[in-house]
């Protein structure tokens, strides 16, 4: 088992002591099969116990170890140390979010936006239990399946230049989820979600840089969802214009 030498430059920030963040360098001898997260865990366990960061599952499911690795938003558990062998690697908290401490960011803004897109099935009238389940064909499921795979890691927000420039923008993950429910055959909430989505900070702040989709570790392709959502929002706008707004 050969070792991979990594020079980690980790952005540190202690809200009680620091005016602004600064880099701290750690030399880590990694095992070849390590992910970057293993190298950071090594620092935490063996070198510097004061380091703060989020992680949980180590298998790209929980979505908590999103961070900037060499300037790109990635899941630390999904990037091999071999990609950065014998190089300096900058590890920073996810871009475009306030830094809580070290690699931990404040996610409140996203949580609030997530609520606003009503990411749940909306029925005009709930059908009684006796009427049975809402049926859905495999083709109907496939239509939005990809957009259900989001793990809220927020890599897409860190990759989005429009979110950086306009923090009010609802952003990729929340909007992809809005589209996921809009395109669910069991849902009837398009007109209701339209009120939020049709605002300038709804779909219209997206300029389709496609960088959210490039960053997404789960291949959700939020940029695609957003373009489809723009078309749907436009159709809905024209419908309301001629008085046929209700879906």
């Amino acid at each position: 088992m050969s070792a991979v030498q990594l020079e980690l430059e980790i952005l540190r920030y202690d809200p009680e002591k620091d005016q602004e963040p600064h880099f701290q360098t750690y030399q880590v001898a990694c095992q070849e099969e390590w992910m970057v997260l293993d190298a950071i865990n090594h620092v935490k366990d063996e070198v510097d116990t004061t380091l703060s960061y989020r992680w949980s599952c180590h298998m790209a499911v929980c979505g908590s170890c999103g961070m900037m690795i060499d300037g790109q938003p990635k899941l630390a558990c999904k990037v091999s140390v071999k990609d950065y062998a014998n190089k300096k690697v900058r590890i920073e908290p996810l871009a475009n979010f306030p830094i809580e401490r070290d690699l931990v960011v404040v996610q409140d803004d996203f949580m609030e936006k997530l609520k606003r897109v009503k990411p749940y099935i909306i029925r005009k009238e709930e059908q009684p239990i006796e009427a049975g389940e809402y049926k859905q064909s495999p083709a109907e499921l496939k239509k939005f399946k990809q957009f259900t795979l989001c793990i809220n890691c927020l890599c897409c927000y860190a990759a989005c230049p429009e979110y950086a420039l306009t923090p009010e923008f609802m952003g990729p993950a929340a909007l992809a989820l809005a589209h996921r429910y809009n395109t669910d055959s069991r849902d009837q909430g398009l007109a209701e979600r339209h009120k939020e989505l049709s605002k300038p900070e709804g779909v219209w702040d997206c300029s389709f840089t496609d960088t959210c989709s490039i960053a997404c570790p789960k291949h959700v392709d939020p940029a695609s969802a957003l373009q489809q959502l723009k078309i749907a929002t436009t159709v809905q706008w024209y419908k309301e214009l001629i008085g046929m707004g209700d879906k």
Partner: peptide
């Protein structure tokens, strides 16, 4: 009317 301008753009 962002929808209007966007539809013309697209």
């Amino acid at each position: 009317n962002k929808a209007l301008f966007w539809s013309l753009f697209a």
